[in-house]
Computed example of a mutant assay.
Amino acid sequence: MATAPSGTLVQALAEVRDLLLGPDLVRATASGARRGQAPAVLKATLRPVTLKAGDRLQLVTEDGQRPTTVNLAPGDEAAARVDELLAEPFASWVVETGHGSLRLQATKKGAVLHRGAAVAPPAGTGHDRAKEHLIDPGDPLYDVIGGDAAKRRQVDAFLRALAATLPDPEQLPRPLHVVDLGCGNAYLTFAAYRYLSGQGVDVRLTGVDIRPDQRERNTALARRLGWEEHVTFVAGSIADAPVDTADVVLALHACDTATDDALARAITWDARWILAAPCCHKDISRQLRKRPPQGAYAMLTEHGILRERFADVLTDTVRAALLRRHGYAVEVVEFIDSAHTPRNAMIRARRTGAAPAADPDLDSLLDQWHIHPHLATLLTDPS
């Protein structure tokens, strides 16, 4: 791949614009943020498609919750939307065409352009009503882990959250160390490896579960898939499992304070990215039951079902605040539609490098509700 010298960002974006609106576009992706700026969306992907209504430029944007797709008519509509995207402060553009590929990386002085070989168009762009999957439903992975429609939907929802959290593959460390804490039967663990390795990422993935029989079962599945050199499993608790480091920490459906154990372990490792989908939230609910709030706030916890739902919100609010206190940018998003499971929140965190800092608002919240979060205790937090 050839690298062009630095040029002005305006000139580089003009070249990108010509490719995006040209006849040979295969696919283009904008992602990342320039220093001190934030685009309106996390990622934008463009590609030509052929629909019953004719040729269109399909735009998929990801805001951290769910993708949004629009199909733009050629001409003024497509050009106007492309110009809006180019005005966003994305850190990089990767454009693939039938004649070559171009990667734009924004710098302090302007931009650097990397040029590569041509990319063959996908076989067919027509897809009226066709649903895209990050892992094809016919992939051999599902022959090993099982895969009814509900499981495939959950896998796809998880992978979209993972894709929206991580930067482009070329910006990831090599190898990328991923640890799944409380992996259980590991079908999402295997899905994460299948997806990331399919994106060209050099992945080393470790699944942790307290049960030795799960380690043996999952190890056998990794061997059956031919992944045993890159996907390994250990038996142990989340807090004490023999794992030294992680770039990405997954904790999916870890029950009650097991999610706190996973978040604390991730912070101890200085993990760059964290995805946690909590399950039940019993700890704070018990504390609210033993010491209910006074005055008007007592109505929030008077009834058991309302107390449990409020405890869910309060628990994850505190977890997000504690992660921010320890140098992470945090989002709490919907993991999968509530029709699939009511436990559908996901905490996504990205390490910013900021030093741990006091948070008076969090301290006030904890004092007001008379709660002592398990995560704060694990982190030896003064609160």
Results as ranks from 00 to 15, higher is better:
Ala4Ile: 02
Gly7Asp: 04
Gly7Ala: 07
Ala14Trp: 07
Val16Asp: 03
Leu19Cys: 11
Leu21Ser: 09
Pro23Gly: 05
Pro23Val: 00
Val26Phe: 08
Ala28Phe: 11
Ala30Tyr: 10
Ala30Pro: 11
Gly32Ser: 02
Gln37Cys: 11
Leu42Ala: 06
Ala44Tyr: 08
Leu46Trp: 12
Lys52Tyr: 00
Lys52Ile: 00
Val60Gly: 04
Pro67Ser: 04
Asp76Pro: 12
Leu86Asp: 01
Ala87Lys: 11
Glu88Gly: 03
Ala91His: 13
Ala91Gly: 13
Thr97Tyr: 06
Gly100Met: 01
Arg103Val: 14
Ala117Leu: 15
Val119Phe: 08
Pro121Gln: 08
Pro122Ala: 09
Gly124Phe: 08
His127Val: 10
Arg129Trp: 00
Leu134Met: 10
Gly138Met: 01
Asp139Ser: 15
Asp139Thr: 10
Tyr142Trp: 15
Asp143His: 09
Asp143Leu: 12
Val144Leu: 13
Gln154Lys: 10
Val155Asp: 06
Asp156Val: 06
Arg160Gln: 06
Thr165Lys: 05
Pro167Gly: 03
Asp168Val: 12
Glu170Asp: 13
Arg174Pro: 05
His177Leu: 10
Val178Ile: 11
Asp180Met: 05
Cys183Met: 00
Gly184Arg: 02
Tyr187Pro: 13
Leu188Trp: 00
Leu188Ile: 03
Thr189Gly: 15
Gln199Ala: 09
Gly200Cys: 06
Asp202Phe: 04
Leu205Gly: 07
Leu205Ser: 04
Pro212Gly: 01
Gln214Tyr: 14
Gln214Val: 14
Asn218Gly: 13
Leu221Phe: 05
Gly226Val: 12
Trp227Asp: 06
Val231Gln: 07
Val231Ile: 13
Ala235Glu: 11
Ala235Arg: 03
Ser237Met: 03
Asp240Tyr: 06
Thr245Gly: 12
Asp247Gln: 07
Val249Pro: 11
Val249Thr: 06
Val249Trp: 06
Cys255Ser: 02
Ala264His: 06
Pro278Asn: 02
Cys280Gly: 05
Lys282Arg: 15
Lys282His: 15
Asp283Ser: 11
Asp283Leu: 08
Arg286Gly: 15
Arg286Thr: 13
Arg291Cys: 08
Pro292Leu: 01
Pro292Asn: 00
Glu308Gly: 08
Val313Met: 14
Ala320Tyr: 05
Ala321Cys: 09
Ala321Thr: 05
Leu323His: 09
Tyr328Lys: 07
Val330Met: 03
Asp337Pro: 12
His340Arg: 13
Arg343Val: 05
Asn344Met: 08
Thr352Asn: 01
Gly353His: 06
Ala354Ser: 10
Ala354Cys: 04
Ala355Pro: 03
Pro356Phe: 05
Pro356Cys: 03
Ala357Met: 06
Pro360Val: 10
Ser364Tyr: 03
His372Gly: 11
